[in-house]
């Protein structure tokens, strides 16, 4: 059915980005077709308009997504790298149980992590007085829980392999036990960068956890993935897919940079 739109009526975009768009958005009016007939030109056009238009609301969403995800990866790295290395070197009863659990946790559904943090941070929960629910901090916390098992498990694997190669020499020069960790983390840096990237991939792609603990509040806790969910639910599929393209492009760019850096570094380190 043909519909007419008045130029300024873009509830979806105004809503999604928390700021009113000034241009006659391309995405909104390109969508009169049904689910099966979404044309790809419209998707690319939507993605293109998002990037070129530099809508401040859109930039804020991208910025928030990156900030939340990178913070989560940073924190997970600070905790996970030493912990994973310690786990690689330590021998204690129940160690294999811990390792199996960590490997399993790598597949933890984001929604479950989200729910866990939600119950923790809810005003009625144990950490309620902090008032952190529906804030970016809560989203970071939830993503740390998602990323941490990946970082710990992959670090343990990397460090354990390296330790079996280095053990004799490190023990010979007196670096036993925990004193060996800095050397192993440093020499494993390229493999460990991959572990952090894997964590970044998981965090940047997930929507379940940030939706629950962030609340998808326009202009405050709305990330790229929750916007995609919202736009899908509003039926603006080209805009949703356009955002998806932007997200993929960002992830691609970050991976390419990391890959390039680690290639150069790995060539140097041999």
């Amino acid at each position: 059915m043909p519909r007419q739109r008045r130029p300024l009526d873009h509830p979806s975009r105004r809503d999604s980005f928390g700021s009113a768009p000034e241009d006659e958005g391309c995405a909104s009016k390109l969508t009169q077709s049904g689910v099966g007939q979404v044309d790809f030109a419209a998707i690319f056009k939507a993605a293109f308009a998002l990037v070129v238009g530099l809508d401040p609301g859109f930039l804020a969403i991208v910025g928030l997504s990156l900030r939340v995800t990178l913070s989560a990866v940073l924190i997970a790295g600070l905790i996970g790298l030493p912990l994973g290395a310690a786990l690689a070197l330590a021998r204690f009863p129940g160690r294999s149980v811990v390792i199996v659990c960590l490997n399993a946790l790598m597949g933890l559904p984001p929604v479950v992590a989200g729910l866990f943090v939600f119950l923790l941070l809810s005003r009625s929960g144990p950490l309620g007085p902090l008032g952190l629910l529906f804030t970016p901090t809560a989203m970071i916390a939830a993503q740390v829980i998602l990323v941490l098992p990946i970082v710990i498990a992959l670090t343990r694997q990397t460090v354990e392999d390296l330790w079996s190669e280095y053990r004799d020499h490190l023990r010979s020069v007196g670096l036993e036990g925990m004193r060996a960790i800095p050397t192993l983390l440093f020499d494993g840096r390229f493999a460990l960068a991959t572990a952090l990237l894997a964590g970044f991939g998981r965090a940047s792609a997930e929507v379940g956890a940030v939706l629950i603990v962030g609340g998808n509040i326009a202009g405050y806790t709305r990330t790229m993935t929750t916007t995609i969910t919202l736009e899908t639910s509003k039926g603006d599929l080209p805009l949703a897919l356009g955002l998806g393209l932007v997200l993929i492009a960002l992830t691609l760019a970050i991976n390419a940079v990391a890959f390039g850096a680690s290639r150069i570094g790995a060539r140097y380190a041999g």
């Binding site: 980005f17 928390g18 700021s19 401040p56 609301g57 804020a60 910025g63 928030l64 900030r67 913070s71 940073l74 924190i75 600070l78 905790i79 030493p82 912990l83 310690a86 952190l132 804030t135 970016p136 901090t137 970071i140 916390a141 740390v144 925990m178 326009a218 202009g219 405050y220 806790t221």
Partner: peptide
């Protein structure tokens, strides 16, 4: 080591909490 790492992370988290709003500064926030 676990405790130390956790403390570090807590610090980082607290840090982000204080700087949380500005980065999301659309007009509304």
């Amino acid at each position: 080591i676990a405790g130390f790492s956790a403390a570090l992370a807590g610090l980082a988290l607290a840090q982000t909490a204080t700087v949380a709003p500005p980065a999301a500064s659309t007009p509304a926030a």
